[in-house]
């Protein structure tokens, strides 16, 4: 049982718990969708450990499937965040089409055997740009928001840190997937992703908390 308790799973379950508590009654469907996405994330993580450690098989195909969910959810979330400032439906459609082409292209090229890391790298780059564009919209907007408790800002902060921070590991993916550093029990990629996951889910948990407080304060005002 302890097999399934890793830094990643613990922080993911923690974030899922916060999401359930804070977003269960949220008015925005996209924020409620976070619960479902986190549920998928936790299920993927636990299944990946099971496949790797118990069944002794490669879990990369599972992460390939999860990449589709990840792209779909994060892209849609960004689209909804932009919606307050601009409408970018065309951008979303174009991006999702490009991603699908890239993903299946790479998958076929790899004969469905390895992780689509090139598509994942493009995905990271696009999400970094999407986060920066969100900052640009905040800066351009004439309306002032208290950023320290502005949920979308913290959600984007977590996303930017995670995808920007994972750039180097994505670049060296081929090498790192083989590498084992003697001083550590896990590969460096795993350690980096542990740190990034902690940062990502802490930011997201804080964003969910902000959203909860915002809902509470607006309902008490009404």
């Amino acid at each position: 049982m302890t097999l399934y308790f890793t830094v990643n799973t613990v922080i993911e379950f923690f974030c899922l718990l916060i999401a359930c508590l804070c977003l269960y009654k949220d008015r925005d469907p996209i924020w409620r969708l976070c619960i479902l996405y986190l549920l998928f994330t936790c299920a993927t993580e636990v299944s990946a450990i099971h496949i790797r450690k118990v069944l002794n098989q490669s879990n990369l195909p599972l992460y390939n499937v999860f990449l589709l969910i990840e792209c779909g959810f994060i892209s849609t979330f960004f689209y909804y965040l932009y919606k307050r400032y601009v409408n970018k439906t065309k951008w979303l459609m174009v991006w999702l089409s490009v991603f699908t082409l890239l993903f299946f292209g790479e998958l076929m090229n790899n004969h469905f055997l390895s992780f689509t890391f090139k598509t994942a790298s493009v995905l990271s780059l696009v999400f970094v740009l999407a986060s920066l564009y969100f900052y640009y919209l905040i800066l351009k907007d004439e309306k002032f928001e208290r950023l320290y408790n502005y949920a979308p800002f913290w959600w984007v902060n977590g996303t930017l840190i995670f995808y920007f921070g994972s750039t180097s590991t994505n670049i060296f993916f081929d090498y790192l997937i083989q590498d084992k550093i003697s001083n550590f029990a896990h590969s460096i990629r795993y350690i980096i992703f542990n740190i990034l996951n902690v940062l990502l889910y802490c930011c997201w948990s804080y964003a969910f908390l902000c959203k909860y407080l915002q809902r509470k304060s607006s309902s008490s005002l009404a």
Binding site: S131, N157, L160, I161, F164, G165, T167, S168, T169, I171, F172, Y175, L176, D179, I181, I188, I192, L199
Partner: peptide, 17 residues
């Protein structure tokens, strides 16, 4: 490689901060 990747990751973490 470990040192190099760690350094790049730290830089890539500081930039968003």
């Amino acid at each position: 490689v470990f040192f190099l990747i760690s350094l790049i990751t730290i830089i890539f973490l500081i930039a968003p901060l």
